[in-house]
Amino acid sequence: MNKRGLFITFEGPDGSGKSTQIRRIAEFLKNHNLPFLLTREPGGTTVGDQIRAMVLNPENRMIVDQTEILLYAASRSQHVQEKIRPALEKGWIVLCDRFTDASIAYQGYGLGQDVAMVQMINRFATDGLEPDQTFLIDVSPETGRKRMESREGAAEVGITQNAAELDRIEARALAYHQRVREGFLALYHENKQRITLIDGEKDREEVYSTIIKALRGSLNLK
């Protein structure tokens, strides 16, 4: 592990199962007595959670694309300064459910905004902090929607809301989520040294095993 800790992010389209996997990885680290921080975006701080409630509220349909980009970046800036950097400076492993890749995929590719501008805003928000390792769990928009809307699928990926309670982003059309997926895949092809692509259509135990194998290598664990 790096002296300043290891920053690991989990990404993927909605319904990919990443939130379930990140909790299992946290349990793995706990069992190995490794210090870690488990956190998420948007949110992770008191300020960030307030922004999360605003940006994901389905009633806030009036939020324009540029505002959405800036709200996510504002939450991330607070998160980095208040939680992520301090944990890394203590030598901890940071497990983060989404980070800047999500903004590039969702607001850049998904909303059709200038990807370079989204990247620039997020470099400022994070003060240049980037993940050391990213696990990208990929599923089709159809699979993701089915999982979110079905009770069985929701239990699989740790989601409790029903179809009528999808958040403002989740409820967008499948065409939007297809663009998001394409954005994630583009990021993978540009960052293969950092991003591990995992087929989220497979059994969740197989997904977990793939992540653990890669993580053991990063942590020099047998």
Rank of each mutant, 00 (worst) to 15 (best):
V47R: 14
L187Q: 09
T196G: 06
Q107E: 08
D101R: 03
S77R: 12
Q66E: 14
G158L: 08
Q21M: 02
E149H: 12
D49N: 13
E152I: 15
I104Q: 04
Q113D: 07
P42L: 14
S140P: 00
D127C: 09
N57P: 08
I195T: 03
R23T: 12
R172S: 05
T134D: 12
E59G: 07
D199Q: 09
I121E: 08
I25E: 10
H189K: 12
L29K: 01
I51K: 03
G5V: 05
G110Y: 08
M62R: 11
E68Y: 12
D203S: 12
G5F: 03
R23I: 08
L174E: 12
P131N: 10
A74C: 05
I121T: 09
R151W: 04
E170M: 04
R52Q: 03
Q21N: 03
A214S: 15
I211R: 01
G144P: 02
A53K: 15
R24P: 01
D14S: 11
K146W: 02
G200T: 07
G5Y: 00
K18N: 02
R172K: 14
D127V: 04
S75P: 01
I93K: 00
R181H: 05
R4V: 04
D114Q: 11
D101W: 02
I93E: 04
A26F: 11
Y72T: 12
E82F: 08
Y72F: 15
N31I: 10
Q78M: 05
L70E: 01
R4C: 07
S19C: 08
Q107C: 08
Q66A: 13
R4E: 13
I69S: 10
R23Y: 13
N2M: 07
L38P: 09
L185Q: 09
S209W: 07
I137Y: 00
Q119C: 10
I121C: 10
K30E: 11
Q107I: 05
A163M: 02
A116L: 12
Y208Q: 11
L219K: 01
E142V: 08
A125K: 08
C96M: 06
I25Y: 08
I8R: 00
Y208S: 07
F124Y: 15
V118H: 00
K192Q: 15
G144T: 08
E149R: 13
A53N: 15
A102D: 05
G217Q: 12
K18S: 05
L56V: 04
V118K: 00
D101K: 03
E201W: 14
H189N: 13
E152V: 11
Y208V: 01
R181F: 07
M62C: 07
I84L: 08
L166E: 05
L221R: 03
E190M: 09
V139G: 03
L136T: 04
K213C: 04
T143A: 06
G153L: 05
F135C: 03
G110W: 07
M62N: 13
A155P: 02
R151H: 09
N162G: 13
H189T: 09
R179W: 02
E142R: 09
Q81N: 12
Y176M: 00
D127Y: 06
A125V: 07
G144A: 10
D97V: 03
P35S: 15
Y72G: 14
A102H: 08
A26C: 10
